[in-house]
């Protein structure tokens, strides 16, 4: 692409929006450093508070103790098995919830009839929080991963569904008219115009759903079952193993952070056509 070679009759591509990825996307070391200041300060405060015993070591172990405890858990308690159990539940539920949400969202977005059939029921279900469904579903399918997958699927489904529906309804009427002029079939209209047009909104729902899913798995595992990172955190509390509790908290935080960042990257990639989109 020769964006730079422009003659007099073709006005130049607007300078500010040149697809100059190398320059624009790279995070400067200084910006990265600024982002690290606050976490490091908190870590320092934690260290000082624990060392000076402002808080009893039973309730607040040293950062170093916590770190050792992490390796200890991996080595002797098979921490990674619990970790993977949680990840597996969240991944499955996220995939099901997203597929259902996008699928039904598109169907309802395209057809008022579908929306009328499902709308009231879904609105009712939506207002009963996922976690309130858990006890009943556990009675049905047991305390294994299935119940948690069902509940988290429900939690992912709604933001994805609602944002898909709203995104489709918000596609510009002018574009629909254009599709008519270009004699596009209904299917071509959906594929080329409606779904891409709704994509920014769909991805907002998916990103939100992903963060909800990860938060909810901790609660669900704490309430039922014998494995997973949520189970560990509540067990650590009842056994007063504060170091293990903190390990779980940090791991949950880091994973949540990574999930959101990868969702942002996905958004940025899929929506690269959008002007000035910065995730």
């Amino acid at each position: 692409m020769s964006v730079t070679t422009v003659n007099a009759t073709t006005p130049a591509v607007r300078k500010t929006q040149q697809p100059d990825k190398a320059n624009k996307r790279r995070v400067k070391p200084r910006d990265l450093a600024i982002g690290l200041v606050l976490p490091l300060t908190i870590l320092l405060l934690w260290q000082v508070a624990a060392q000076r015993a402002w808080i009893s070591p039973i309730f607040l172990p040293l950062p170093s103790t916590t770190l050792f405890s992490f390796f200890d858990m991996v080595e002797r308690q098979s921490f990674h098995i619990d970790f993977l159990a949680s990840i597996s539940i969240v991944t499955q539920a996220f995939v099901y919830g997203t597929l259902l949400g996008v699928g039904l969202g598109i169907a309802a977005g395209l057809s008022q009839t579908v929306e009328r059939i499902f709308g009231p029921t879904l609105d009712g279900i939506r207002h009963i929080p996922g976690i309130a469904w858990l006890p009943l579903i556990v009675l049905w399918v047991g305390i294994g991963p299935a119940a948690k997958i069902v509940v988290i699927t429900k939690t992912v489904f709604f933001p994805v569904f609602l944002n898909t529906l709203q995104g489709i309804r918000a596609v510009e009427k002018n574009f629909i008219e254009l599709a008519d002029v270009l004699t596009l079939t209904r299917w071509q209209l959906v594929r080329k115009v409606i779904i891409p047009g709704a994509m920014p909104s769909i991805l907002v729902g998916v990103r939100y759903g992903a963060s909800l899913a990860w938060a909810l798995v901790v609660v669900a595992e704490g309430l039922s079952g014998m494995e997973g990172i949520g189970y560990l955190i509540f067990r650590a509390q009842s056994l007063l193993m504060t170091d293990q509790l903190l390990v779980c908290m940090v791991v949950i935080g880091v994973v949540g952070f990574l999930i959101d960042r990868s969702m942002a990257l996905l958004q940025r990639h899929v929506l690269r056509w959008k002007q000035g989109f910065e995730g």
Binding site: M1, S2, V3, T5, T10, P11, V13, R14, P19, Q275
Partner: peptide, 18 residues
């Protein structure tokens, strides 16, 4: 229409005339 070289460009990168 004199836009050779801009085939892979997205609309937001084009001026009004283009």
């Amino acid at each position: 229409v004199g836009l050779t070289g801009f085939e892979k460009v997205y609309p937001h990168q084009l001026s009004g005339g283009m």
